[in-house]
Structures are given as structure tokens and as C-alpha cells.
Design a protein around this nucleic acid. Structure first.
Lengths: 159, 159
DNA sequence: GCGATGCTACTCGGATAAAAACTGTCCGAGTGGCATCGG
DNA sequence: CCGATGCCACTCGGACAGTTTTTATCCGAGTAGCATCGC
């Protein structure tokens, strides 16, 4: 059960896009350089964010990405779901119905598997916590020095 | 981010061991037949449960597995951790320190990454929910018919 | 008859391949800006 | 001098390999019970 590192990348990119402002679109190569990660691979995740309506992309010269919504309207759950998909980590395969359970009376399995319910309850708590936090919260919590340094580093690149 | 199916198998096996009672040790082959899953592979996960002190194993003829503790003393978190490991799904790679962040002032990264904190908060909620439920809770929630059928199926095999 | 002993069948346990998912890389389609050309 | 036009550089987007994690399988070490043999 390992989460893709793309989640961390995506969140950092959203944070960076807030810091750099909404004036200019930031291309993949710039974001990749900011964190020293492979740009072509990062692009893959940024595309996923576009499909989830978290970012908008503009093609051509001076193109790039910018936030599709205000930072307070993007929850961490939105980003995680965009990268990891909407399926939960635990997936009930209904093994109770196989083997010795194959001869069950009809209707016995009408109510869902208790194990699936228990695991689902835990994942619901996880999602609730993620949905309660937004990109704006991350911006507020981050030290201003990082934002300032990022802007200074970016300034000469903004054309 | 997919959880191993071994978690579902392990939980169902714990439930089954409660149903079949603590009198006899149940071998891997029997548990595998109960759910029609590959026995050699299931054995791998049962070993993990033994290492986590959730099951105890006895070798030789009439050997097998039984619960190491009472059902109310085994939480779902214990089982999930035994199979999946104790590491969380999200792992902060500290990418903020690389690339443009490489020239940071010393001490700027003294406090941990806000993204890691936010993700950790969600995982903590997930763990809390898992730790609040025990195998005994699953037994109580499961329909008695399943337990009864499992016992009838097992009876001729118990030597 | 009773006990010790050797054997057999059965179990767990870890080491070993196949499959899937994730990670990383590449090139093509499309777009905006700019220089050039004509009026 | 002003506007339209063609070209070029830059960007996103999806298709293509490499590598790690997960899934599946196998055989060896060890133990409990039973039959046999000796006393």
C-alpha cells in the first residue's frame, strides 16, 4: 500500500502555482526545475490534474499551467483522487462467497461484508480529513521565506 | 495506492479461527479451501500474522494456526499493519529541498513539510478508526448463519 | 506386557519465478508570437 | 506607416520501454504421532 510520489509532486506544484500568482502560466519544465524532478514524468501528473479540473492548461508559446479554481476551493482530497483514482485502497473481493461459502442460502449475503464495512469506515475517516484541508491552508501554514525565494528564483524566467 | 488482497484474506481467516474455536489448530490448507484461494500464497500472509503475534503456529501432524490472543485484543490495525507494514502510504521525499529550494537558508526547513503534516493527519484518522475495531466486533456483526455453516463444513475435517 | 526407538506423514517456513503496477522517457499535434511582405 | 500572412519556436498530450512492488509457486527443515522392535 504505497501512494504514488506523484501526489507529493502535485501538491507542491499547486502550492508553487499559488506562490507565483495567477498572472502567467507556468510550464512543466519550470515546475520540474523547481524541485529537480523529471519534467516529462511530472507532465503526466499535471495532465491528471487538468482532467480533474484542478488545473487549466494553455498550449503554445508562453503556455503552461495555472490553477482552475481559487486555492480555498481545492481540497487535498481533490488532488489525491485526481492522481490515485477514486477507488479505495481496500477492495472487497467477496471471498466469503467462494469455497465453503459457495453453498450459502440465497439472501445470506444480502447485507454487505462486515469486513468491507469496517475498512470502508476507516477510509471514510481518511477522506473526511483530506477533504477538510485546502491548498489555501497549506499556503498559510508554509513559511513565507519559501514563497519569497521561489518568486525570486522564478522572476528572471517569467517572460 | 492499492492495499494487498492479503489483508482481506487475513481478516477472514481470523474470523474463521474464532468461529472454529480454539480447540484445534487449523492448517493453511483448510483455511485456503474455505475461501478457495491458493494455499501456498495464503501461507505467506499467515506467517506475517505469526511474526506480528496475532497467530501462533504449531508444526508437525495436527499442526496449524490458532489465535495468539483473544478476539477482543486484536484490532484491525494490528492485522493491517502485520500485512502492509508499519510505513504509511504517503512518504515525504522532501522535494522542497531540491532544485530551487537547494539554496535555502539553514534552519528554514527545521519544521517539517506542511504537506507531510496534512497527509499524516489523514492517515492518523485512518489508523484511529482501524484501532477502534477488533476481531470480536467483526464476529458480532457477522450473521450467525455463516459461522454455523463454516462449522458444519469443518467438522468432518477436524481429526 | 511395556517401553524405547525409528519411521512416516504432515505441517510451517523461507527461498525462488511470473505478473502487474509504477516509474521514467520519448516524439507528435497544436497553438501563440514574431518577422516578413504587401498595400 | 499599417495590416495581413506565413513561419517558427514552444507547449501540452498521449504512446512507448525500464524498473520496482506485488502475486503466485515451490521445495526443504522440523515436529507429532504411530508402528515396530527389543527387553
Amino acid at each position: 500500500m504505497k501512494m504514488s510520489e506523484g501526489v507529493e509532486w502535485a501538491l507542491h506544484c499547486c502550492l508553487t502555482l499559488v506562490w507565483l500568482g495567477d498572472e502567467t502560466a507556468v510550464p512543466t519544465s519550470t515546475l520540474a526545475a523547481a524541485f529537480d524532478i523529471p519534467s516529462h514524468y511530472l507532465n503526466k501528473f499535471l495532465q491528471a490534474l487538468v482532467r480533474a479540473d484542478i488545473l487549466v492548461s494553455t498550449a503554445g508559446a508562453k503556455g503552461g499551467f495555472r490553477l482552475a479554481r481559487k486555492p480555498e476551493k481545492i481540497t487535498l482530497l481533490d488532488v489525491v483522487t485526481a492522481i490515485e483514482g477514486s477507488d479505495g485502497a481496500f477492495r472487497c473481493a467477496e471471498i466469503r462467497r467462494r469455497g465453503a461459502g459457495a453453498a450459502a442460502k440465497p439472501g445470506e449475503f444480502a447485507l454487505p461484508c462486515g469486513i468491507a464495512i469496517a475498512m470502508g469506515r476507516a477510509e471514510a475517516a481518511w477522506r473526511r480529513e483530506l477533504a477538510a484541508q485546502t491548498i489555501l491552508d497549506l499556503v498559510k501554514a508554509a513559511p513565507p521565506a519559501g514563497a519569497e525565494r521561489m518568486r525570486c528564483w522564478y522572476a528572471p524566467r517569467a517572460r
